[in-house]
Design a protein around this nucleic acid. Sequence first.
DNA 1: TCCTGAGGTTGACCCGCATCAAAGTTTGGG
DNA 2: CCCAAACTTTGATGCGGGTCAACCTCAGGA
Lengths: 269, 269
Amino acid sequence: MAARIDSANPAFSLESLRAACSTCGLVELCLPLGLSAAEIERIDAIVRRRRKIRKHEALYHAGTVCRALYAVRVGFFKTCDPESSGSSRVFGFHMAGELLGLDGIAGGGHTCEAIALEDSEVCEVSFEDLEALGRELPALQKRFHQILSREIQRDHQIMRVLACKTAEQRLAVFLLDLSERYQIRGYSPSSFYLRMSREEIGSYLGLQLETVSRLFSNFRKRGLIEVERRHLNLTDLPELLRIASGPDPAESAASGFFAEAGSSPSGRI
Amino acid sequence: MAARIDSANPAFSLESLRAACSTCGLVELCLPLGLSAAEIERIDAIVRRRRKIRKHEALYHAGTVCRALYAVRVGFFKTCDPESSGSSRVFGFHMAGELLGLDGIAGGGHTCEAIALEDSEVCEVSFEDLEALGRELPALQKRFHQILSREIQRDHQIMRVLACKTAEQRLAVFLLDLSERYQIRGYSPSSFYLRMSREEIGSYLGLQLETVSRLFSNFRKRGLIEVERRHLNLTDLPELLRIASGPDPAESAASGFFAEAGSSPSGRI
DNA sequence: TCCTGAGGTTGACCCGCATCAAAGTTTGGG
DNA sequence: CCCAAACTTTGATGCGGGTCAACCTCAGGA
């Protein structure tokens, strides 16, 4: 699954087990983006360990006072409210190269939990160490602030969708977002597996699972997608884009969700 | 209006016009929270100027590449999508001591604009300077990260509300949030003026202005509030809390919005 | 192999809120 | 002082999507 990116590594060596960023194919997506080789080696030193998280297991729980960040190396996560009360609200889905745990920085522990949706692997970075190194490497400091700020931007986009868009628009936005993020990582933007259930999609988009299911069927009938269980084929990206940006194609589409998200390869990150 | 807080200052002096944080009554809310007197004096040096923004004027526009942050000193702001298309989506309301412009850090300019809802005043801090000083003062660096992280936490709470709550719950959550933030600033938690229109409230909560108006009337009839145009009196805070946290009082209320927001004086900041 | 439970699809019904409409109220400018 | 525009309230109506329910498929375990 992640072969295409991992193949950028020289090989599966001892080196790649100990060190981290210097030999990682995700260097162009993750924390070290834009840093020099020398700077990246400094980061290697604070990446404590790589943790493997099995499907359905938690990387961290809500309330945990773990003062660390996690970079997804392999796999797929969701962040959500504690599962204690059955249907927990999903805040986001997280792919390789994305940082988890940004909500825990403010103190008082994580406000949500991170669950692996497939067997995954993360790099753990002590937040203390990251701050300390940031004081030495302005480029790292700036990069970290950029990541935090972009998370805020992204949350705003989700708020836009939740507050203003119809169910149909929400699903189109969601599929296009996934598409773009897969493309950035070197995968097909139009054909991929959904790692999450209909219920998790619905929770993320503020919809019921039945509505999500109906919309998939509806999109299929209109020839926009092919869908078989969790395998998905986006067969009409332009039309999906039109749906996502608003019901009225004549509208100048000035400030639609994807007017910004699409103008530059923002994706997550 | 802001007299109660400003009265903490020695006087309206020349000093208070030039310097900033050292003589500011908001020191316990704003960027310098938790820093030593010596550290705060260092911050004074990078607070470039104080800008006055008149009601309805913009502090910054979307797309502006201004690399600065703004701390609200006096007044009240909304952040929203560009007003170009009439009804612009509101992302948040911002009171004294809160930081604006966090979305602009990621580069590519601000993604939204900040409009004053009353005559206001902000302190401008160059983001470059803040990063540089953060490298010297770990406490400042940590405080800044805390602010960014808390903004993310807060956005998650808004997403929770938008995705899961009914109109009635949303308005109750909104009123209680305002109440708490006024209280933190030394004002009455139960009696205050709304600085924003029904339409702006609706935009923020993902509702139509008519729905907001109807809910105000409904709450009035139920004896929860007294409302006269924009003056508001919360006469039954416990019941508002019950409404906000969920329809079922028997529910353990484990992960409701205000289970967290209420347990500690989080407010904004 | 069957059994079981989780996940997915589809239908029927209806409620909450959007939408359209109209009238009252306040504010600010000439 | 008056007028126009902005804001607010309230009513009538309709639809999008929530809710309840039934059935189907698939994966994993005994």
